[in-house]
Design a binder for these strands. Sequence first.
DNA 1: AATTAGGGCACAATCGATTGTGTAAAGTAA
DNA 2: TTACTTTACACAATCGATTGTGCCCTAATT
Lengths: 350, 350
Amino acid sequence: MADLARELGVSMTTISRALSDHHSIGPAMKQKVLKLAKKYNYQPNRLASALRKGKSQLIGIIVPYIEGRFFPSVVHGIETAASKAGYNVIICQSNEDVAQERRNLEILLSAQVAGILVSLSRTTLDVRHFEKVRSRGLPLVFFDRIVEGDNVNAVVLDDQEGGYVSTRHLLSQGCRRIAHLAGPQHLNIYKNRRQGYLDALREAGLPEDENLIVYMDMSQEQGVAAMRQLLALPEPPDAVFAAGDYSALGAMQEAHRQGLQVPQDVAISGFSNEIFTVITQPAMTTIDQRCEEMGQAAVRLLLEVIDAAGAPFTPRQVALRPELVVRNSSVREPETELTTKKSRISTFIP
Amino acid sequence: MADLARELGVSMTTISRALSDHHSIGPAMKQKVLKLAKKYNYQPNRLASALRKGKSQLIGIIVPYIEGRFFPSVVHGIETAASKAGYNVIICQSNEDVAQERRNLEILLSAQVAGILVSLSRTTLDVRHFEKVRSRGLPLVFFDRIVEGDNVNAVVLDDQEGGYVSTRHLLSQGCRRIAHLAGPQHLNIYKNRRQGYLDALREAGLPEDENLIVYMDMSQEQGVAAMRQLLALPEPPDAVFAAGDYSALGAMQEAHRQGLQVPQDVAISGFSNEIFTVITQPAMTTIDQRCEEMGQAAVRLLLEVIDAAGAPFTPRQVALRPELVVRNSSVREPETELTTKKSRISTFIP
DNA sequence: AATTAGGGCACAATCGATTGTGTAAAGTAA
DNA sequence: TTACTTTACACAATCGATTGTGCCCTAATT
C-alpha cells in the first residue's frame, strides 16, 4: 500500500479508502488506485486488516471428527456457504474429547474468528466453556449435537419428524405390524426417532407393542440379531423401521437368510442415507439427513448473528425437515395420501 | 498484555518475553507473569503476533471438494497432524474449478498462511498460479492430484504398486486368467494401476491379453456391463482386478446373476477400500489408499519445508505404499510367498 | 457578496504483539 | 579494586491496514 501511495503521490488513507470504496474518495482517484493495484498485483494483508478492525473473515468450526458420511458433508455445506459470503473456514476436531474441544475453542478465540460453529463432542457434559464465547459477544451456533435449551442458536435435523414420516410411509404401504430397531435412548436422536415412530402409530390407531421395539447399538451385527428375534415372534412384523442404516442392513440380510422377500414379506427402512443404501438389493429406503443443508443453515444463522452485531439477538433454533428417500426395500403399493403433521420447532426449513 | 504490564509495574516487553520464554527474563519474573496471565485468563491475539512475525500458525488446504471417502479422510489426517504441531488448518474447496482454485490461492496468500497443501482440481491444466506461491517463498506441497515433475513437493499413493500387489495376490490364489477393469487412461491413477497389473502379469510369465482388459468409467453399471462382456468370452477370466470398488461391485453382482460363485469361479478385487466393501457378500478384497497417512505425510513434508526456512530445500516426492486388504471375494487358497518388487520413487513410506 | 454545505484528501492514532538496541545492576575474573 | 560479562528489563519502532478528525476548495444557497 505504501508503494501505491508513493507512486500516486497520495496518502495511504486514500489508497485504503479507494480500495474499500469509501464515499469520500472521488471516482477518478478510485480508478487510478484500482488500476495501479492491479498492475502491482497488490494483495491486502488480511491479518493487518483484521487486527485493526477487530474481526477477521474467518469462521471457526469444531466437529468431533471429519470422517464418515455426516460431518464431511456438513463441513462441505458450511465451507460452500461461508465462502459464498466471503468468509473462510478454519476447522478443528475435538476427537470426541471435551478437553480438546476446550483447547480448540481457545485457539479459535485467539485467532479472532468472526463466529464459531460447533457440534459437541460426546464427552461434553459441562458446557461452561462456551460461556466465554458468549461473554465476548462472539456469535456462536451449534449444529446437530447441540446444547439443549432455547437460549442458544442451534440447527438440527428433526429426528422425530424423520421417525414419523418413515413410519407413515410404511403404513401407507399397507404394513400394520411395524417393528422398530431403536438406538440408545439416552441419545436424543434415537429417542426422537422412536417418538416419531410412536406418534405415527398412535395417529394410525395402532397399538404400541413393546415386543416390536428392539433396543440396540445400531450395528449391522445387532441388526441381524434383532431381526432374528423379531422373526421368531408368534406374530412377526411385516415391516421394520430401523433408526440407522447399518442395523437396517443387518435386518435385511437376516430376512433374506430366512428366505423372506423384501419388501413383499417384510418392508424395511433405515436412517441416514449412507452411501451403501443405494447398492443393497433391493435398494434401501432411508431418511436423508440433509447434511449440506444443515451446514448451509448453520452458516446462514451464524451470519445473521454476526450481522446483527451488538444488537440484541434472540437465539433461534432451526429444525431441518428430513427427507424420506423411498427405494425398493419398502415399496409394496402406490403411496397413499395421508394428512400432514406440524412441527414443534420455531423455525422449520422444508 | 498492557493490563498485565501495568499490574506488575513492568513493560510490555517483559510480558511478551516472559510469555515466550525469552532468556533475558528472570525465572522469578516469568513465574509472576505466567501466574497473572492465568489469573486474568489472558489470551494472546494471534493476529497481532502473526502480523508482527510475518507468519501465522495457519496451514491452508485446497481440495477439489470435501465429500466421498477420500478427501475427508485426508483432511482428517492433515488436521490431526497439523494440530499436533501447533498449526491450524484453513480449508478451501475448488469445486474442480481452476478459477476457484486460483481465488483460493489468493485468499490463502493474503491470510498469510505458513504453508499450503493442494490437491489439484480436474480442470487445472495450467499451473502457473502456483508460481506466485513459490516466488513468495511460501512452502507448498501437493498431494494425490499433483503437478508432475521433480521440482515440486508431492505426496501420492503408488497406484502402480497397488495394481501390482492386487494382481500378485490374485495370482497367489491360483488365478491365471486375470481380467482388468481399467479406468480412463488419461488419468494417471488409472494408467498406473493398469501398469502395475501388467507388471505383475509379465513377472509371472503370463501373456498380456487385451481381451481381458475393459476400459470404462468405473461406475457400478459399467462394471456390470464389463463383467457381462468378459463372461461371454470363449475363455472367461477366473479373476477380475477392478481399478475401482464400484466397478468391482458391478462385476460381482453380474457374476452372481449368472450363477457364478465368488471367489471360487471368479475372484474379484477392487480399489479404494470404500465403506461398502465390507458389507458386500462376500466382503470385497480391495486396496486401501491410506488417506490419513497421506494427510500426515503431506503435513510432515510441509513442516520440513517450513522449518528449512530460507535454506535451500530440494523438492521431494513421497509415495505411500498402498495396503492390500484381503477379504473373502478373492481368497481361494492359502497365500503363496512371492518375491517383492522395489519402488521407483525417491521416498517410500511403507 | 457572504455563508453554508459537502466533496476530496491528509494527519496521526490505533489494533496487539514482537524485537533490536540501550542501559542499569549484579556477578565474575584478573 | 578495575574491567569485563551477564542478567534483567525498558524504549521505541514496527508489522499493514483502518478511521476519527481536520483542512481546503468548489458549488450552492440566501
